[in-house]
Design a protein around this nucleic acid. Structure first.
Lengths: 341, 341
DNA sequence: CTGTTAGCGCGTTCAT
DNA sequence: ATGAACGCGCTAACAG
């Protein structure tokens, strides 16, 4: 006995339980599924047999006959940052609270299309009731095609498809809010560090440009990405570069803003006195006294709830029509922005 | 056709493919599994039938006959912080690189024993080849019991059991390194903010105390936890409190150190001139210029690789005996520590 | 060498 | 309370 059990003895099946309890397989099944049509005597006999053998029903066997896996597949692509972790928490607690006998499982989508596709294939083979894509790198077309095989909810990215649900922040609006805030403070030379081909980056860029043009000023785009290094790089370039430093910057996200601030401050630039900076995402870090960054909040919590609701609706009710939900972002004013001097 | 397909038509099975290709089920199976004993003609016929129908083998059915799920279950309990994300990345890439046809899936273990147990039960029912526990809240006993049903690897926490693998950092050694560094710099009044009942916290405390006593000084413990707020709280208490502020602090982790620094600096305390601070974990944040925190690095990467290796060994080779691997931490000296004045 | 038949694995359910 | 049939894919044994 002990550890070699596992090696020699295979897992007990429903047959073993039936035999040990002196009843039929069917009865064991009824007991396991809490059927009322079982005598107390049989029930206790079966339950103790289950206990003694350490029996666990096989999800595979049950799934086969039920034609239902009870799984929800979540494919996480790109970086697993805090943002996604919070959404995940939302999904898990929603499923738990609503007593849905459905288990969310996360698969690693990796950083490229190929591994993401592989992860999605796994979901399809596992027959997950629904596939949730967090930050997909696939084309709209590919995703649309998957949406015809299984309910798909995509998070954090805009998409045009009638076949799938979309939960996303209104990044365009968010960037508009950020830019408008700076314009209202009297800034005119406002630059935007772009998010490269990150999720929602082009919308943020569009929002920024629209607002600038609407106010009659020329947009200034600085190519970047969602990594902190793009902030530090930009900082160095601004310090060393020939041109004037803009009086305000709309950063692609908080990390970029923080990297930028860090370099500028070390270079003797005062923030917000010389340069105002707005971030995006309102990550925990942004609220820290050292940064106290003005930023755009995505209401991640609301997003998590929405995703969970959609996932469940689609997974459980096949009549449900796909929908697109845009979460409204909000401006959070802290101390990295002030009136233009 | 289109979206209603999914609602009306069930997924095609191996039979449907066989029928459409005009061959037997067996042959389809052979094609799907790349058997060489299939003529090119049949193979192409089958493959195109698969393509036309959008056939995907059912993991449940295959698992049932193979007696093998091809899944590795990862249960994440407590907070899903960056630390775990990196380890995860390690496991996924190890599995991919080594071409193991095994899929890691993550289940949400929640924040309490009950939900963690539920997640582990799911793994058992899914017949995962192995269960990986990230930061379990269960008792040693419970975990040991699970280790008799399925190979278990536990990460980030010490355990005494012959039945399961353990990958953990040598937190005691890490705290010793941190404390010794400060002692070497001539500090004597060195306080330690503890990590409460967080994973590894008691080992860190032990290491700190041992080093202090060995040097002939009295340990000063400040009850805390792994959250940033414990750093800020401690900061306020030190500033307002009656006693002298210690000349150096070993924080439970980087977040606590950062919270502490933030408050102390705002209160006019210079770091490292007045107080030296050492963190623990070497999170990305610690390397940022704004903090540039001296800390203990856990070599998360090495940890991820080790976990992955153990998971695979145990999952694939049942002869493998469980082992305990302690990762050596390293001191990273930055600018928050200096010689005692 | 290529292809088929039959039976199995595990749990559910209907008719007995 | 039970026996038999079933769901889907795999494979050993067998046939052409």
């Amino acid at each position: 006995m002990g550890s070699e059990d596992r090696l020699t003895r295979k897992r007990p099946t429903i047959r073993d339980v039936a035999e040990r309890a002196g009843v039929s397989k069917s009865l064991v099944s009824l007991v396991v599924n809490d059927s009322p049509r079982v005598s107390d005597k049989s029930r206790t006999a079966v339950l103790s047999a289950i206990d003694e053998l350490g029996y666990r029903p096989s999800a595979a066997a049950r799934g086969l006959v039920n034609q239902r896996s009870g799984l929800v597949g979540i494919v996480m692509s790109g970086s697993h940052d805090v943002f996604y972790a919070e959404i995940l928490e939302g999904v898990a607690s929603y499923l738990a609270e609503n007593q849905l006998d459905t288990v969310p499982i996360i698969l690693h989508g990796g950083h490229n299309r190929e591994s993401e596709s592989k992860a999605i294939d796994q979901c399809l083979e596992l027959r997950t009731e629904c596939v949730m894509l967090m930050g997909s790198a696939l084309s709209d077309d590919s995703i649309d095609r998957i949406g015809r095989e299984v309910p798909v909810v995509i998070v954090g990215r805009r998409m045009n498809s009638e076949a799938i649900d979309v939960v996303s922040c209104d990044d365009e609006l968010g960037a508009e809010l950020a830019t408008k805030h700076l314009l209202d403070l009297g800034h005119r030379r406002i630059a935007h560090i772009t998010g490269g081909n990150g999720n929602g980056a082009s919308e943020r860029e569009t929002g920024y440009c629209r607002m600038m043009e609407q106010a009659g000023f020329k947009p200034t785009l600085i190519a970047g990405g969602y990594d902190m290094k793009y902030g530090t790089e930009t900082g160095h370039r601004l310090l060393e570069g020939p041109g004037d430093i803009p009086t305000a910057v709309v950063a692609a996200n908080d990390l970029v803003a923080i990297g930028l601030m860090d370099v500028l401050r070390k270079g003797g630039v005062r923030i917000p006195d010389d340069v105002s900076i707005v971030g995006y995402d309102d990550i925990v870090l942004a609220g820290l006294d050292s940064f106290d960054l003005t930023t755009i909040s995505q209401s991640i919590h609301q997003m998590g709830e929405t995703v969970a609701r959609l996932v469940c609706q689609r997974a459980l009710d096949s009549e449900q029509r796909p929908q697109t939900v845009l979460i409204d972002p909000a401006l959070v004013v802290r101390s990295t922005t002030r009136v233009a001097s």
